[in-house]
Design a protein around this nucleic acid. Structure first.
Lengths: 181, 181
DNA sequence: TATAATTTTCAGAAATTTCTGAAAATTCAG
DNA sequence: CTGAATTTTCAGAAATTTCTGAAAATTATA
């Protein structure tokens, strides 16, 4: 199992990108070979394709599993673990977003929450900023949770509509605010 | 200008977070002191508050400016540069998202685009994945661009609605598809 | 249970990133 | 212009992250 040179560009690139997503270059490359290869791959194959040590692959696999991006498969009569993507491209993308939200937003949110509990109000200016950030993240969080539950097709429709949703909202407004006028 | 110990927790925390957003710990801490402090700060004050070198502050400022997160101010009779956040918390958050999109999505998109041009179709499986990722990112990109233009209030409304939008869409569907039936 | 196959761990090495601080460059007032 | 104030640069040092590979642990087979 060689890394086809046609794929090399992608693998290298997704390595670079991976490091922006919260895991390191090698882990990004591992994800790339797993996603772009049709058959499931075992650890030795991955090590060989990327010219990295077996131990490194083991750690990378653990990382990708903690992100729930890959899944283990077994072949009859073979004791090795084989790995495949944990879903379609669409599902993987949502999963990356979801994990990043968890790692980037949640810890901040709980810190801010805690602080707003105590905060006796001495640093008024700072406290106001804390409140603003808190509300923003909370809003984002519930929105994302909500969105994440939608089935892919509705979600795609929604994305395609973009800010066009604004217009639909106006429409809804006109239709549902009889009580207000 | 001392760093009030009440703020230390936040500054440290936003340092950690900063490194998840694409800049390093120190740059994250610099952003935090600038955002949480009411008066504009100069480079020496920032260096002192965070106990880092003057040179480091200079580099951090450049970074934060490249992200368009801070802005320089001047005081009459004072030649130093003073820095303030480049907008409200809401605007800063959008700006961070916007820059991240630019740095994480755009490069991948152009690589994929280029590849789909050439690609004579030898690695069918991989090519399909390339196409899927390409379409997904393209969809996300236009959606974000669209959304980014909305004024904060409409955007807030939209976020609050969350997947409730789905219901509104159904409503719209029923109201606008007379032509189809 | 013994042993062969496989995976995981982790100490130290290698690579990368970040930081310092002195020197160079820039800016501005007189 | 001159020179003091300020900012920027960047080589090397320090800190951090990632990687290797051999040993330990685990798992499955016979």
């Amino acid at each position: 199992m060689e890394l086809p040179s046609e794929l090399e560009t992608f693998v290298v690139h997704f390595g670079e990108m991976g490091s922006r997503w919260g895991f390191n270059r090698t882990v990004g490359q591992m994800l790339a070979v797993i996603v772009f290869t049709e058959e499931a791959l075992n650890a030795d194959q991955i090590a060989k394709m990327l010219s990295i040590s077996r131990g490194n692959v083991s750690m990378g696999i653990k990382e990708l599993q903690s992100w729930q991006l890959i899944r283990v498969h077994h072949k009859p009569g073979d004791r090795k673990d084989y790995f495949k993507p944990a879903g379609t491209i669409w599902e993987l993308a949502l999963q990356v977003l979801s994990e990043r939200r968890k790692r980037e937003v949640d810890p901040t949110l709980s810190l801010l929450r805690g602080q707003l509990m105590n905060e006796p109000g001495e640093y008024q200016f700072a406290t106001e900023r804390v409140k603003e950030i808190h509300d923003l993240l909370e809003l984002f969080n519930t929105w994302f949770e909500d969105i994440h539950r939608m089935n892919p097709d509705s979600l795609k429709t929604l994305l395609k509509l973009g800010s066009g949703v604004g217009k639909v909202l106006d429409l809804k407004e006109r239709l549902t605010t009889r009580d207000k006028s």
